[in-house]
C-alpha cells in the first residue's frame, strides 16, 4: 500500500495524461466518425463505398498494429511529432469507425414510419430530419456512443506500451522500482481506470433511462 501512496504523484501524472489522451482522441474520433457516418448514408454511391471500405479495414486491424504504425512508421516516413500526438492520431483513427457505426445504427433505428409521417404532413427534407428523425436518433445514439468511449479509455492503455507516459506506463515504471508490491500497484492503476469507466457507465445508464424513446 505504501508503494502506491509514495508514488501517488507519478500515478496522478499518468492519470492526467490518460484523461488527455481520452479527451483529445475522443473529440477527434467524434469528428471523424460523424464524417464517416455522413459519407456512409449519403446518396452518392462512391462516398458510401469509400466509407464502407474504410470502416471494414480499420475495424479489422488490431489496435496494436495501428499504434505501431503511428509510433514507428510515421517517423520513418519523416513525420515525427511527439509520441503523445502520434498516439492521439492512432486512437482517433482506430475509434472513428466504431463511432460511425454507433451513429449509423442510431439513425437506422428510427422507424421508417416516423419519416413517412413527417413527410406526409408536408415537412421538407431538412425539417423532417431536424424536427423528427434527429431528436430521436441522438437519444438512441448516446448510450452506445458512451460504450465506445469506455472502450477508448481502456484502449489508451495500449498507447502506454508505445512510449506515452499514461496510467499503464506509470504503473509499469513504478512496478520496475518496487517489484515487491506488484499487486498493490497494479490494483492502484486499475482503480484509476475504474474511476473513468464506471463513471461513464453510470452516465450511460442514467441517460438511457432518462431519454429513452418510449414505444
Amino acid at each position: 500500500m505504501d508503494a502506491v501512496i509514495e508514488n501517488l504523484p507519478i500515478f496522478l501524472e499518468g492519470f492526467k495524461n490518460t484523461l488527455g489522451l481520452l479527451l483529445l482522441s475522443g473529440i477527434g474520433a467524434l469528428v471523424l466518425g460523424v464524417i464517416v457516418a455522413a459519407l456512409r448514408i449519403s446518396p452518392i454511391a462512391s462516398f458510401r463505398g469509400f466509407a464502407t471500405v474504410y470502416t471494414e479495414i480499420v475495424r479489422n486491424t488490431p489496435l496494436t498494429l495501428v499504434l505501431f504504425f503511428c509510433a514507428f512508421l510515421l517517423p520513418y516516413l519523416q513525420f515525427s511529432p511527439p509520441f503523445f500526438v502520434l498516439a492521439v492520431i492512432g486512437l482517433t483513427v482506430y475509434t472513428s469507425p466504431f463511432v460511425a457505426e454507433a451513429l449509423r445504427s442510431g439513425i437506422n433505428g428510427v422507424p421508417v414510419g416516423q419519416a413517412e409521417a413527417a413527410r406526409s404532413v408536408g415537412l421538407t427534407f431538412g425539417q423532417s430530419l431536424s424536427y423528427v428523425i434527429m431528436p430521436q436518433a441522438v437519444r438512441m445514439v448516446i448510450p452506445p456512443l458512451i460504450n465506445v468511449f469506455i472502450a477508448l479509455t481502456k484502449n489508451t492503455s495500449v498507447a502506454g506500451a508505445f512510449f506515452v507516459f499514461e496510467l499503464f506506463g506509470a504503473g509499469r515504471q513504478v512496478v520496475n522500482d518496487r517489484g515487491d508490491a506488484v499487486i498493490a500497484i497494479l490494483a492502484g492503476v486499475a482503480f484509476f481506470y475504474l474511476i473513468i469507466t464506471i463513471t461513464l457507465g453510470q452516465i450511460a445508464a442514467r441517460v438511457e433511462k432518462k431519454v429513452a424513446v418510449l414505444r
Binding site: 481502456k154 495500449v158 499503464f168 504503473g171 492503476v189 486499475a190 481506470y193
Partner: peptide
C-alpha cells in the same frame, strides 16, 4: 473485469 484494460490484466 469489464472496466479494466486487457493489457493491464495481462501484465498483472
Amino acid at each position: 473485469v469489464r472496466g479494466m484494460p486487457v493489457l493491464l490484466m495481462i501484465l498483472f
